[in-house]
Simulated scan of single mutants.
Amino acid sequence: MPIEVACHLNVLVPDAAEPGLTRALGALAELGYSHVVLPPFDPDGAPLAEWAALFRDHGLGPITMVGQAPGADVSSADPAEQERGAAALRRMVDATVALGGDQLNGVSYGLFGRAATAPPREAFERSAAQLGRVADAAHEQGVTMTFEVLNRYETAMINTAEQALDFVAVSGSDHLRVHLDTFHMAVEEADMLEAVRSAVPVLGYLELGQSGRGALGSGSVDAAAVVREAITAGYRGRIGLEAFSRSVLSAVATEVLAIWRDTYTDGAAIAAEAIDIVRSAEATVGSREGTA
């Protein structure tokens, strides 16, 4: 079976509002994508049944995202705040099920944003234990939970594949998975390919993001090499595209993500290039294995 390929919705449109959502899903389905990653949303106010029908109609599986908020943070030393953070994660697991999805990504281990100091080891361990419990419960509902490794300017908790492996081990969960993103890896990893190889046993999502947040074919990240390395190392999970442009994102998202430039204007073209890169890399590995 070919590798399943996902695309972040914000590559094409700023949010899940209509008529943009239906147009974006149609474009991704036509390009051959299997999944779409949704930007964060309020599970209590979203039209889950309506969205679920749209995903089914376009043959696309939804991948949801979840985070933490001040006062609801699993890494907090306050048990009540920890529980509120875990409850937010569980609500999004339920929303994922309602949408017909089977994967939940996100920065689920703590607050997003640059920290003044690195969190203590105790915060790391508290967060891992909470996520492990949620991941095990999510597995029972048919949902795989991953956590994204970010660069130092977006979190001080987990910046490298090595730290992510430690986090999984501390969690005590057999079901918690790692989400690696080449945009962040380009900042933090001394050897990106080795980092990918090391994480394959617990890798649940491999995201391709270029150094400048634009087209995969222009920048310092060799996306094709990353895909080839992952597949050669035995990875058969989903591979996703993430790209951001100021002309496409919402005003709020551009500020949060520091997207100051128009890195592209045609999201469908970016998505077309990305899936071609993945399929070509996949075919190259298959050809090597066929002649070995």
Rank of each mutant, 00 (worst) to 15 (best):
Q68S: 11
P70G: 01
P70R: 00
A72V: 00
A72M: 06
A72L: 04
D73Y: 08
V74L: 14
S75L: 09
A77L: 13
A77H: 14
D78V: 10
A80G: 11
E81C: 06
E81Y: 11
E81I: 07
E83F: 10
E83T: 15
G85I: 04
A88N: 12
R91Y: 06
D94N: 11
T96P: 10
T96G: 01
V97G: 05
V97P: 08
L99P: 03
G100L: 03
G100M: 04
G101P: 13
D102N: 15
Q103H: 14
Q103Y: 13
L104H: 10
L104E: 03
L104M: 08
N105Q: 09
G106Y: 03
V107F: 00
S108I: 04
L111I: 07
F112L: 03
F112H: 02
F112P: 08
F112I: 10
G113Q: 10
R114T: 06
A115V: 12
A115L: 09
A116C: 11
T117N: 14
T117W: 15
T117G: 03
A118I: 13
A118E: 11
P120F: 06
R121E: 15
E122P: 02
A123S: 14
E125W: 01
E125Y: 03
E125C: 06
R126N: 07
S127G: 12
A128Y: 07
R133T: 13
V134I: 08
V134W: 05
H139G: 05
H139V: 06
E140Q: 14
E140F: 04
G142L: 04
G142D: 06
G142H: 05
V143G: 03
V143Y: 00
T146G: 09
F147H: 12
E148I: 08
R152A: 05
Y153K: 06
T155Y: 09
T155V: 03
A156L: 05
A156Q: 09
A156G: 14
M157I: 03
M157L: 10
M157K: 05
I158K: 00
I158N: 02
I158M: 03
A161E: 12
A161I: 00
E162S: 01
Q163F: 00
A164M: 10
L165D: 04
L165V: 00
D166E: 13
D166M: 01
F167T: 02
S173H: 12
D174M: 01
H175K: 13
R177V: 03
D181H: 10
T182D: 07
H184T: 13
H184Q: 10
M185S: 02
M185F: 05
M185C: 00
A186V: 12
A186E: 12
V187G: 07
E189Y: 10
E189Q: 15
L193M: 06
L193Q: 12
E194Y: 02
V196H: 13
V196W: 15
S198D: 15
V200N: 13
V200H: 12
P201S: 09
V202A: 03
V202W: 11
L203H: 12
L203A: 07
G204M: 02
Y205D: 08
E207C: 15
E207F: 11
E207M: 14
L208Y: 04
L208P: 14
G209R: 13
G209A: 10
S211A: 10
S211D: 15
S211L: 08
R213Y: 07
R213D: 07
